[in-house]
Design a protein around this nucleic acid. Structure first.
Lengths: 77, 77
DNA sequence: TGATATATATCCCAATTTGGGTTATTTAGG
DNA sequence: CCTAAATAACCCAAATTGGGATATATATCA
């Protein structure tokens, strides 16, 4: 099946985090995960599950739809 | 980190598929995956990655935002 | 009922991915 | 430079995945 690569997903998430003025450590604390988790997600080393996206968006301080839209947008450029 | 379980995600996806009047085989064909994949996703045995959600929604014939909203709604009940 | 077709679930298992604590490296100020 | 903050890389047992094959369930109808 066609899928947007973890690498592109991570690229979008990093941009969203930077735009929000947050560090990986700050996001990790909100998610109660190690910072290495956020680093891996942003580098595309690890994929984000749909069920994880809701709290990830919340940790970034943005609406989940905005996150979903940003990722899709990234894939089209 | 908090996450919506695969089981709840799968329950939503099954409902969306049935509402769309599609079979697992039909969805699987559109996704070019085996039918067992759809079965596993719907039962919660397998998780869906964010990067896979876009084409999954397309295979269901719905907007990705509607899918995301349906899953979140399921989690709150 | 029972025959048949359609739909969904289960099996298997090598290969891939993950979780998360720890350590290393990079980057930014002063 | 020095230091602290930020990010990346390591490790590896445990968990998850992919997908073809097979089994089970459900629906239809003569």
């Amino acid at each position: 099946m066609y899928e947007i690569s973890n690498r592109l997903v991570g690229r979008s998430l990093r941009k969203l985090r930077c735009d929000a003025g947050l560090t990986q450590v700050a996001v990790a604390q909100r998610l109660k995960t190690p910072q290495s988790f956020v680093s891996k997600v942003e580098s595309g080393e690890r994929g984000l599950k749909l069920g994880e996206v809701y709290s990830y968006a919340e940790a970034l301080g943005i609406d989940v739809f905005k996150l979903v839209e940003a990722v899709r947008g990234q894939a089209n450029h």
